[in-house]
Design a protein around this nucleic acid. Structure first.
Lengths: 230, 230
DNA sequence: ACTCCTACCGAGCGATCGCTCGGTAGGAGT
DNA sequence: ACTCCTACCGAGCGATCGCTCGGTAGGAGT
């Protein structure tokens, strides 16, 4: 029982955990280059050098420069989608909580994985064929998750927005935008920033900042009680 | 008197007016190519072909590929800054009105000039040397304008934000983000979108949507009266 | 001992890149 | 009539690009 509870808590919070060096070294080298010079501005020789490989050595692992980009972008979208679903699942049945955790998750990802998210967003143009289509579908799915929760909240009367669709887009954009400016050596940790962004997002829906600043582990009873808030 | 008033009104609203084909044909061709393939993904031959010039013909007008990008980006930033200043000036002394018009202006620009704004934001990496520094300074100046107005509004008690700096960044990001997704054939005109974004932005500062949906020309008396609102 | 297989390279190929050389055509000025 | 100047090109140069050829080194399996 004790073990199961601990494990459940651990799983439930997995979407908040970010390790370093999650990418294979070669992909990490490619990502660094892409961030610095862009996909087309990066040469295969630069990537190889940064990964301490020869050019043929690099091609042993990936078939082409394009394959490197595809692998990076697919990793990014998969990671974000899994985390997003976990976050919503952890929230339980409260729409307000679902929204709060999803935005927190979105912000957290774009701060912690800013390079990854930056490339996934800025190099869509550089993706060829099907991987481009697939990537755009992932993006749309991500937006749809936020749309759905906001619509649900509108129906239940928790949220108040004149134009929910536009508000949803604005919220997602401001979260994904984090990847463009967030610096690890800045003033805020990803966690602090994510809390602030969740509150800012709530305000656009007419929900007060609702200062829930404690750790998630302290007050798990709130979500359990089947009380309709509004 | 009649002429002067008319001219004043016209000047005051100049920041709302967007003509087409404002760029020289060659720069427009370059912009189209950059939007489609990115700066490094664009070849000088492609630009020349789209502008119906030979390659040496192109180099008669601009010294290098980099010069094309610099010209485009400088045009974009100059245009946005001038419009922003005009918008704030038109607002008069009311901080709330200054904020509303500045956000409207920002959103309007990023919808009307989405290609221009998109390149100006996404190709910073591709700018070399001083023009890169200058461009980043322009960006910061733009952010600072919003910061200043929000801070002023906080001091005067018009706005309510837990973290004004973060809210300001979120607002600017969601406006500049418009350039990434706005399509001319979409559901909303730039003007409609800008009004909605101004309202969404106001909500993040605890100010209700304040449905001021009429034309700007109907109620100019509000800004004239030197009344402190709060 | 021998056969695979994985993980790599040195050298270089064909294509394409940004950019230039040495021009011309035609209008404006005197 | 002559001199500029602007607005262009055809052809091509040197550099660099993505990618490949034909290898080797060394560990695992039998």
């Amino acid at each position: 029982m004790k073990v199961e509870t601990a494990k459940k808590v651990e799983d439930a919070a997995a979407w908040r955990k970010y390790s370093e060096n999650m990418l294979p070294p070669l992909l990490q080298a490619a990502l660094d280059c892409f961030v610095e010079h862009g996909y087309h501005g990066t040469t295969i020789r630069t990537v190889a050098a940064r990964a301490k490989l020869s050019v043929p050595g690099l091609y042993h692992h990936y078939a082409s420069k394009q394959a490197l980009l595809v692998a990076i972008v697919q990793f990014a979208m998969k990671d974000l989608l899994v985390r997003s679903e976990d976050a919503v699942a952890e929230a339980g049945s409260s729409v307000e909580e679902q929204f709060r955790l999803l935005i927190e998750c979105l912000a957290l990802f774009h701060a912690h994985r800013s390079e990854l998210a930056f490339i996934a967003a800025s190099e869509i143009r550089s993706l060829e064929g099907e991987s481009r289509t697939a990537h755009i579908q992932s993006r749309d799915k991500q937006q749809q998750m936020v749309d759905d929760i906001i619509n649900q909240g509108m129906r239940e009367g928790n949220f108040d927005a004149e134009h929910p669709k536009d508000t949803s887009r604005a919220i997602v954009t401001m979260c994904t935008g984090i990847a463009q400016w967030y610096r690890r050596d800045g003033e805020l940790t990803p966690e602090e920033l994510a809390l602030r962004y969740a509150n800012i997002a709530r305000m656009t829906l007419g929900v007060g900042p609702g200062s829930r600043r404690e750790s998630v582990f302290t007050a798990p009873t709130v979500g359990d009680a089947p009380i309709v808030v509004n």
